[in-house]
Design a protein around this nucleic acid. Structure first.
Ligand SMILES: NC(=O)c1ccc[n+]([C@@H]2O[C@H](COP(=O)([O-])OP(=O)(O)OC[C@H]3O[C@@H](n4cnc5c(N)ncnc54)[C@H](O)[C@@H]3O)[C@@H](O)[C@H]2O)c1
Ligand SMILES: NC(=O)c1ccc[n+]([C@@H]2O[C@H](COP(=O)([O-])OP(=O)(O)OC[C@H]3O[C@@H](n4cnc5c(N)ncnc54)[C@H](O)[C@@H]3O)[C@@H](O)[C@H]2O)c1
Lengths: 229, 229
DNA sequence: AAGCGTTTGTGAAATATTTCACAATATTTC
DNA sequence: GAAATATTGTGAAATATTTCACAAACGCTT
């Protein structure tokens, strides 16, 4: 059977508003940003396997895109390949990480320590991707039994101070849908600029704040369309 | 402060391969499919508020898109508005649900009952979106203490029989990354045609199978790009 | 039942993204 | 060190998506 990569490498993000950042630099399309994240993960795997250099063809294949697309994506923010040879794996990784802003560990907080929030809190996979959930907040903060959670679980009252003191710019929002907009507003007031939202509603945030929604029901629904003959 | 909807309504899906389904019908772009899911949720909210009809302008605003885009999206699979009046909320909902294949409750299984899998299993929000997780499977099946889980948690050996008997077509995959591809292959052999994958790898599946990836690290990374000035 | 105000549906234009094609430039081989 | 080989970077073409602009169609009012 012929196998090929028939998947959306970055799933949740089904619908992308055409908002891009212009900051002196060239504008990078939103879809390119997502692909850069994928390239970064492929490069990490290559590095683990001891590869020093990689061609656009090989990397593109690993990422499930065409080589020209990869090169166009990279062209958005520089030229760092060697013709005839390819790209230096380490250098390309670090340039992409710089561009994405993940070259240093980012502090993240989580709000809403319920079923989902607890699973995310205890997940040890974010650190090696450049993120660390440094604290969690809940309207009703309780330490769960039978769980080793490294982070403090705090009340909402201390959140503003904590965000200010730790320079937190990103938050994961896993509160029930009816509270989500209210909590999001609060986060924004405290200075959070990026929110990863799991509540099944469309958040409204100011222009200079970015909210990404992960809506699992929509992902399932999307699948259900494509599986019908 | 001027607030507006600065969010990706369907998050995880950052990168969308241009694969579309042609089945006699008109081809519907993948992005349109995602938006249809959003429209469906907005319509549900309108119905709760007692609205009978809605104009493309009002619905588009709720969904965070332009009215012309909404109308173009709907035009992909029919014409059911009334000029001068708008759309019948109930009728439009049911036509979209038909198109997406969620007009009947879909049985879904979950594989990998760990931290994340358990949170998903105990989540009661999927039913009203048209999905029901009817069983879970794990290489090491254990009933969790302190948790009411309605679904059976079964061993991998009984999975093929279960899938065949219940006509399962969709699966949620929440096993560790190193096992994900192997389990996915197994699911495909059993007849599963749609996989929602949480493991941070790009799955390779046959052409007639769809895999959507939810990669939270990529979502965070995406945010981290946009929050830098 | 005719006129008015609305709102849809859609071809055409505008915009964005992807792919192509190839010159430019490096490495490797002999 | 020159020729052969490989691979990048990029303008231009192709494709896809979004937006515009407006005719057509409906409900409502009188
Ligand atoms: N659990 C899942 O698998 C799952 C799947 C998809 C979507 N979601 C969504 O994720 C969100 C969380 O789901 P969950 O199952 O963890 O819910 P949950 O009810 O288990 O947990 C919600 C937590 O948020 C806290 N909370 C409520 N209001 C708050 C407020 N105003 N400020 C701070 N904290 C508050 C509660 O105390 C609770 O601990 C929901 O919006 C849900 O729809 C969950
Ligand atoms: N927990 C999170 O918050 C989180 C966040 C992002 C991504 N993820 C990803 O989701 C996946 C699950 O995460 P988790 O934290 O729940 O992991 P986990 O280790 O808690 O659970 C994994 C479960 O899968 C089972 N399993 C392992 N191999 C299997 C196999 N071959 N067949 C069947 N079952 C098998 C294990 O018995 C275990 O119960 C991982 O790929 C992880 O990277 C998790």
């Amino acid at each position: 059977m012929k196998y090929f990569t028939n998947a959306c490498p970055a799933p949740g993000a089904g619908l992308i508003l055409p908002r891009v950042k212009k900051s002196g630099r060239i504008i990078i399309p939103r879809k390119t940003i997502y692909r850069l994240s994928i390239y970064l993960r492929c490069l990490a795997r290559l590095k683990e396997n001891g590869l020093d250099t990689v061609s656009s063809e090989a990397l593109a294949k690993a990422a499930g895109v065409k080589p020209t697309q990869l090169r166009k994506d990279l062209a958005c923010f520089g030229t760092f390949g060697t013709r005839g040879l390819g790209y230096d794996v380490t250098e390309l990784s670090s340039r992409i990480a710089d561009e994405l802003g993940t070259s240093r560990l980012q502090p993240v907080i989580l709000v809403g320590v319920g079923n989902l929030g607890l699973a995310l809190l205890s997940y040890r996979g974010f650190e090696k991707e450049g993120f660390e959930i440094i604290a969690a907040f809940d309207a009703n903060p309780r330490r769960p039994r039978n769980k080793q959670i490294a982070q403090p679980i705090l009340g909402m009252d201390v959140m503003p101070k904590f965000i200010a003191e730790h320079g937190v710019k990103m938050a994961i929002l896993s509160v029930p849908a009816p509270s989500a907009q209210e909590v999001a507003n609060h986060l924004v007031e405290c200075g959070v600029a990026g929110i990863l939202n799991f509540a099944p509603i469309v958040l409204t945030v100011p222009e200079d704040v970015m909210a990404n929604n992960v809506n699992l029901a929509i992902e399932l629904e999307n699948l259900s369309y494509f599986i019908r003959e």
